[in-house]
Nucleic acid binder design. Structure first.
Lengths: 271, 271
DNA sequence: AATCATTGTGTCAATTTGACACAATAGTAC
DNA sequence: GTACTATTGTGTCAAATTGACACAATGATT
């Protein structure tokens, strides 16, 4: 039990030495729950495109989703929030767990070992990292412009990628991404979306392009507006958006109270 | 790694001795992933009432949801299916993971230890069971009449309970049950339900009472029928149900092909 | 001033939904 | 057997929602 209560800062310092990876493997079990990881699908929206934040792993050609482990003193949600914060600088963002991935084939232990050895790190089966992992998938919707992508000690790049240009990811991360997208599309049917994805005020066409990007299909401009306004979660501002090359559209903002209520109660309910 | 490949039958035998619980605590880590459990909310339907299968834990006044652990060689889904099978005798049933529960307060280790000691079992912090658990919630919909409830080695009763008469459950199991119900209600909006909950053939009023039990509210008889038939997943049989005290209703069965398609593609889709 | 892409606001028919009426049927009471 | 009752099968109809589309207004560009 003692290990649960080890000073968090001390462990932090522990992890920040020269041989970060080697230390994680030796001492990860002091801080984190074994066999359990989480992966975050972080969506952003920019120039009409839905984006995903990806990491380029050291010494690997494939990219991966940002992920992490769950400390003995954290809930899953806290751990996911921490991971999100470490990669983006943001915190307190809408973050939703959507599936747990537990296939036996998702942890390729022999390959992990050989990769570690290539890095000159001693590790044997059952060591931290060289074990089976069960991963909880989270997805987040964040404001593209507020994010400052940051790589971690296991990766040497952290970048936005167009959803249509993701390519092959490590392990089952393509599957995780697919499931996140599927879940979000379903969610769109009974929950509002966009609060963290768009700037504080936005135009109706901008909101529509977001929905189109998520759904992957075109929507009718006028019917979209009628429906969105019908939800009663938008407030039209007196100003119009200036600078565009055409007729200036109105600006809208979310009615936070109504938005939160819609998140809890759903939008139309079905039955 | 060796432990992963230990003959499963051997371990089975290991667990079936006199001091099952003591052995589980000593040797559970050989078979199962540490810190990870799962809980199943098993719904049934009988006499117009939605039921949940509950276990009465030994030496405890509170009841609990059937749960279990994940073997090193199992996926979560396989483990959940096994748990369901052990309590009901059924297998291959629709089983859906709906949330992971990871609050720090959900594992009361001091209390677990004192309960074990009351049973005359030696255990210390960090031992199997006397550790933090993160639990994956699954829910299942099963045919009430096909189930033969069976207690396990940690419990001395396994019974159906009316959803309205569940009472206080151990730990956060009331919360888990609530979340399962909430998830199932949402699911009702875009997926068919009832295949495993009802007998092979059933009447429209029976199906309606199932929906009413899940949603917790009355529905209009005629609109319900119109909508259900509109989904195109039902086939009306030539026979009618005899024996009732009133006009004999038609019998229906699910069109398995259409049902599966509806499960995958959703019922109306929203956008 | 004409052009052009884009936005604001409707309209209208088709479809879906919600509320309700009425006839048919199978037991029950007499 | 006949009346009664509760329940089922089938529709109807108005209201609300949805999908498809038209037209005027605006703001930069030429």
């Amino acid at each position: 039990m003692k290990i649960f209560y080890l000073c968090s800062q001390k462990l932090n310092a522990l992890m920040e030495g020269e041989h970060n990876l080697a230390r994680l493997i030796r001492e990860g079990n002091l801080r984190y729950l074994p066999h359990l990881s989480l992966d975050c699908v972080i969506f952003g929206f920019h120039e009409g495109q839905l984006k995903v934040l990806l990491l380029k792993m050291k010494h690997k050609s494939d990219w991966s989703l940002p992920g992490g482990f769950v400390a003995h003193t954290e809930t899953l949600e806290q751990a996911a929030d921490r991971v999100l914060n470490e990669r983006t600088g943001l915190s307190g963002i809408f973050l939703k767990q959507f599936h747990v991935f537990s296939d036996l084939s998702r942890s390729d232990i022999p390959q992990t070992l050989s990769e570690l050895r290539r890095d000159g790190i001693e590790a044997k089966v059952g060591d931290w990292l060289a074990q089976r992992y069960i991963s909880v998938g989270f997805y987040a919707l964040v404001s593209f412009s507020k994010v400052v992508p940051r790589a971690d000690m296991l990766s040497d790049a952290c970048e936005w990628r167009d959803l249509s240009d993701v390519g092959k990811l490590i392990l089952d991360h393509n599957q995780i991404l697919g499931k996140a997208l599927e879940t979000m599309r379903l969610q769109l049917n009974y929950q509002p979306i966009g609060y963290n994805l768009l700037p504080p005020s936005f135009t109706m066409p901008e909101l529509q392009r977001l929905y189109e990007a998520i759904l992957g299909k075109k929507l009718d401009r006028r019917n979209f507006q009628r429906r969105m306004l019908g939800f009663g979660i938008l407030r039209r501002l007196p100003e119009r958006k200036a600078g565009g090359a055409h007729k200036a559209p109105y600006l809208y903002e979310f009615d936070h109270e109504a938005y939160k209520r819609a998140l809890l109660e759903g939008l139309h309910g079905g039955w």
